[in-house]
Amino acid sequence: MNEWLKQKEMLEQKVRQKLSYPYLHKYIEKPEIEESRLLILMMPFTAEQLLSDDIQICIVSAALIQIALDTHERVIASSDYIAKDQQLTVLAGDYFSGLYYRTLAETGNIDMIRSLSAAVKSINESKIALYHQEHDSVSSIMESVYKIETEIIKQFYSVFDLQSFFPVVSHVLSAKRLIEEKHLFVTGEKSVLAEAVDSLEAWGNNPSLSVDGQHEMISICDQYINHAKAEVEQALHDRSVAGSVRELCSLLYNETFRNKTYPEEG
């Protein structure tokens, strides 16, 4: 495990090196790879496998494209004026996206380029569907959330034929997002998910939910979160899964599902 964690630090360092651009960093929020996502990218590989240049390059590239998409999420939706930091945020996202492509192109890994591009396409379609409230049911909304959070990992795993790892990590990733959205909703902040659910005809298109409506919204989130939690717990008890993987799942489980209570929820 220690060797594996050393590899994690090394990969983080490689990602940081790629992202280094002093002028940009003066103006934009520092780009970071979420630790859980990096763990998930590394999870199926042993410490020895992680020594492979090809695998490292693929992990770094997948991290870069995620960072590129996350960077673009920081562009303010509407404004009559665009400040320099926002202009550079747009360009930073494009730059990181270019870096992911170049990193893979340098080794001729066209398969991974194809797969990650497919993921980005699907993610943006889902983001727009969510943002523009194009859904007609709660389940299709959740499907979009699921795609947004998991598509990069799914495509990454498919290139290495590691699909068996996907179900458990997909539950972790989608649950993390739902927990965040629930928190936003409960604290009165803007929640894209809540707005999408709110827009459904069955909800009466009511921009300001009644108390019952709010409880219903939280209940929906909890339903999906609890289902994801149960699936991950099952994976943790599955003796056929390698010990190191279970250890990592345990780390992710604790990070995602433990200590997530908020005063507003009581």
Binding site: A68, L69, H72, V75, I76, A77, S78, S79, I82, V90, G93, D94, S97, V120, K121, N124, E125, K127, I128, Y131, H132
Partner: peptide, 12 residues
């Protein structure tokens, strides 16, 4: 702007 970012990323 949000729509423009997603559209550009999709097209790319």
């Amino acid at each position: 702007n949000r729509m423009a970012m997603y559209t550009g990323d999709y097209i790319f």
